[in-house]
Design a protein around this nucleic acid. Structure first.
Ligand SMILES: [Mn+2]
Ligand SMILES: [Mn+2]
Ligand SMILES: [Zn+2]
Ligand SMILES: [Zn+2]
Lengths: 139, 139
DNA sequence: ATTAATTTTGTAATCATTACAAAATAATAC
DNA sequence: GTATTATTTTGTAATGATTACAAAATTAAT
């Protein structure tokens, strides 16, 4: 996606499209790898002069609050970020630690009986070993 | 559940039923409130002479590795523990922070197409406002 | 009762995240 | 454009949950 498209997208969601914000959103959108703050910072610090890790935290928190990114709590020691806010599920490989998407339709999600509850977010994720790592192991 | 039943259960799962382990498992089984380490420690420290928080961590890690407890990563800053290892989902209220169970049948869970993947764990949870807190808010 | 193995404890270390005030940047007014 | 004001970014320190580790205590085996 172009920087210009990203700027427009951020603006539409009430976020001023400052340079570092656009770069971080561009990174999320193009890599689609559900990175941690550490991954984003270490990849972008070379490209953005004088980037601070605190800024990465600030910008991601802003993105989540504004609804343009999801914070995924798959394992307790790290948060992973996702610019895809549509309904979908995640698989995390316990060998390579990769997180990949899978599509789920909203109507495929179980509908638990929770009368009087206001349900705001659905989270569905799987853990296991990805096909790449399965092949490596049996080889 | 009786202490004796818990001891037998732990033994069957390869865990020596030492006093503190039985007490901690008894707490999990009887309260069913998906407590954090902090909650378990502060509730049991009065009842068990000289309990250490490190022991709570050690015992819970042992339980999870042995398959008699689940570690729930619903929000990134805390792990909640559950002695119910059957297939079920969780709802977390963002007002009162309570975590409650709901039943899901294994066959109700979406079956994503992940050819060649080894799927070992399913996690399904919801966030929102529980019925109790909904009532309080509108009142 | 001795000895050996396991568990528990207390403290320090680690690691991700947040708090905060100063410096830098961007927007607005003149 | 320059001065003024508001917002953002930075660097460092603080926080909080978890783990590492070695000594002390407990449990099992001889
Ligand atoms: Mn995703
Ligand atoms: Mn549960
Ligand atoms: Zn893998
Ligand atoms: Zn509630």
């Amino acid at each position: 996606m172009e920087q210009q498209q990203i700027s427009t997208y951020l603006l539409k969601n009430g976020i001023r499209p400052l340079q570092k914000r656009v770069k971080i959103m561009g990174y999320l959108v193009s890599k689609r790898n559900h990175p941690t703050v550490e991954m984003i910072y270490s990849d972008l610090v070379h490209e953005i002069k004088g980037l601070s890790k605190t800024t990465v935290y600030n910008v991601l928190n802003l993105f989540v609050q504004s609804g343009v990114a999801l914070a995924l709590n798959i394992e307790g020691n790290e948060i992973r970020y996702d610019a895809d806010t549509s309904t979908h599920g995640h698989f995390k490989c316990r060998v390579c630690s990769g997180v990949i998407d899978f599509r789920i339709k909203q109507e495929e999600l179980p509908k638990p009986m929770l009368d009087g509850f206001r349900i705001e977010e659905h989270h569905f994720y799987l853990m296991g070993v990805c096909s790449f790592c399965c092949n490596k192991i049996e080889a």
